[in-house]
Computed example of a mutant assay.
Amino acid sequence: MEILRKEMLEDLKAEHTAPCISLYLPTHKTSPGRLKDPINYKNLLKQLEQSLRQKYSVDETKSFLKPFEELADNEDFWIHTTEGLAVFSSPDFFKTIVLQMPIKEQLIVSDSFFTKPLRNYLQTKDRFQVLAINLFEIRLFEGNRHSLSEVALHPSVAKDMEEALLDDELEDRNKRLTVASYGGVGIGSVAMRHGHGHKKDKSEKYIERFFRVVSEDIELYHSKPTGLPLLLAALPEHHHLFREVNKNPLLMKEKIEIDPFGVPVEKLSEMAWKVIEPNYLSTIENLMAEFEEANGKGAGSINLEEIGKAMALGQIHKLLVANDTTIGGKVEDKTTGTLKTGDIEDPEVGDLTDEIAEIVMDKGGEVIVIPKEKMPNQAGLAAIYRYKL
């Protein structure tokens, strides 16, 4: 089970052997809801079996169902769920992904994987990470308004003070040897690098070095790859020193002053969202203001036909998509942006919002999922152009 990452979408979009099975299931972090999750999952597998039997033999169907059934019997798996679960399987591929958001139950068997819910999740602006740290260890969490889940730290990240100081001492030793081999000043240069003055006692030096190593590791292996804002959760007396050595631009000025290891994850999640929410609401308001300004200058639109033409020209800078919105239809001609609307229940008709969003991203535009109630005129789509068309 993994937390969703952008690069996972590329794996899912790659060509896979049919049938490509996409299963989405709302799950629960606590009982009694958690106890029902495996039951709901097994009920979906019954539907999956019926669907597969319409096209495949009994033996083929059993083969396709096998990894799903093994997951159903994995008790340890079902006690570590969050708000949502996505499972993708084909004869050459199997992956489970946890989602920190409520999700609609869906089961789709096709020639390719159905990834719209994943892309919508990645395109929201309420995602963030929380770095929990004390003098002995660190933990990293990722989540949104709904929940937090612990992130497995990259193997190169120091997990505690002992490991951080050991890594730091080895790095210092290597630098001294390198400097000495070129006629440098060796130990003196290392002292300058760390900024350890005679006024600092030994314990403060260790804490400073620990915080610096953690800050560098988290920035390199987690902040840069995700681009998510980072919220620090630590005791009040540790915030100032951590920020003194921090160079991670994604570390927020807001903070949680608490021993993060002394509260349940659910409580930490509540505290984090209370801090994050004003920034999130401000971001949404700024996006709406940006759209209104662009629209007033003829560089924005909520009109589907106009959005289609701008999409074809590659002139959509930002596409705002209302969450949980589908528009039945398809792009008839990608070169002209001609769109055709229709009944979403028609098997020959897809989700127009999804298709437009994919084309916009392929042409270098940004897609952002917005709460439906915040969208201009309650539109399903709103576009901000690169310039007036």
Results as ranks from 00 to 15, higher is better:
residue 96 T to R: 09
residue 87 V to Y: 03
residue 168 D to N: 13
residue 81 T to G: 00
residue 294 A to L: 00
residue 150 E to S: 04
residue 197 G to Y: 06
residue 131 L to C: 07
residue 92 D to P: 04
residue 207 I to L: 12
residue 220 L to D: 10
residue 247 K to M: 10
residue 76 D to A: 12
residue 282 S to G: 14
residue 249 P to G: 02
residue 82 T to R: 14
residue 174 N to R: 15
residue 330 K to W: 11
residue 212 R to P: 01
residue 350 G to C: 03
residue 231 L to S: 01
residue 75 E to D: 14
residue 106 Q to T: 14
residue 142 E to H: 09
residue 329 G to N: 02
residue 259 D to L: 04
residue 138 I to K: 08
residue 157 V to G: 05
residue 218 I to D: 00
residue 389 L to Q: 04
residue 319 L to T: 04
residue 356 I to G: 01
residue 181 S to H: 14
residue 271 M to S: 07
residue 284 I to T: 03
residue 323 N to W: 12
residue 307 I to W: 04
residue 277 E to T: 08
residue 222 H to Y: 02
residue 377 N to R: 15
residue 337 G to I: 02
residue 122 L to N: 00
residue 274 K to W: 01
residue 19 P to R: 04
residue 116 K to G: 04
residue 278 P to D: 07
residue 99 L to K: 04
residue 285 E to S: 15
residue 325 T to W: 09
residue 258 I to Y: 06
residue 66 K to P: 01
residue 147 S to D: 14
residue 157 V to I: 15
residue 307 I to F: 02
residue 278 P to L: 03
residue 255 K to N: 07
residue 230 L to H: 01
residue 298 G to C: 03
residue 293 E to V: 11
residue 70 E to S: 13
residue 313 L to E: 12
residue 388 K to N: 14
residue 282 S to Y: 09
residue 44 L to V: 07
residue 101 M to E: 15
residue 206 Y to K: 15
residue 159 K to Y: 10
residue 66 K to S: 14
residue 89 S to N: 13
residue 89 S to I: 01
residue 263 V to H: 08
residue 208 E to Q: 10
residue 342 G to W: 14
residue 269 S to K: 08
residue 215 S to L: 06
residue 82 T to I: 12
residue 233 A to H: 09
residue 245 V to H: 01
residue 167 D to C: 07
residue 202 K to H: 13
residue 126 D to G: 06
residue 205 K to T: 13
residue 228 L to S: 05
residue 40 N to A: 09
residue 50 Q to T: 11
residue 325 T to H: 13
